[in-house]
Design a protein around this nucleic acid. Sequence first.
DNA 1: TAGGTGACGGACC
DNA 2: CGGTCCGCCACCT
Length: 106
Amino acid sequence: MVAQIPPGRLATYGQIAELIGAWGCARQVGWALRRLPLPATIPWQRVVNGRGRIAMTPSREGSDWIQRQLLLAEGIPVQADGRLPLARYRWRPDASCGESSGDVAS
DNA sequence: TAGGTGACGGACC
DNA sequence: CGGTCCGCCACCT
């Protein structure tokens, strides 16, 4: 599901959980991404928490900063503390429309 | 077997 | 805004 997030767009852990039919299991989504070997082929960096922040914790051993760099490279402004404009870049999956998954809201 | 621990989220203050 | 508390659930001591 994470692999379906278009470049330059964002999704939340809870959103991914809901999309795969695991409502309320956001923590497990985080668990799965946490143990992902890097570099990874799937765009794991496009998943952030519901408060619009990258979880900045030492336990990630630098993957949080890598995530910030990858998102900046995709054109998403991320502050040094991990805060980012989630509402503007939020990915809204549209099953009915075969078009691209939507434009960035202005 | 029993606690502790999160790449979370919602309710509150 | 920021901060705390709590429910959550699969791992890891």
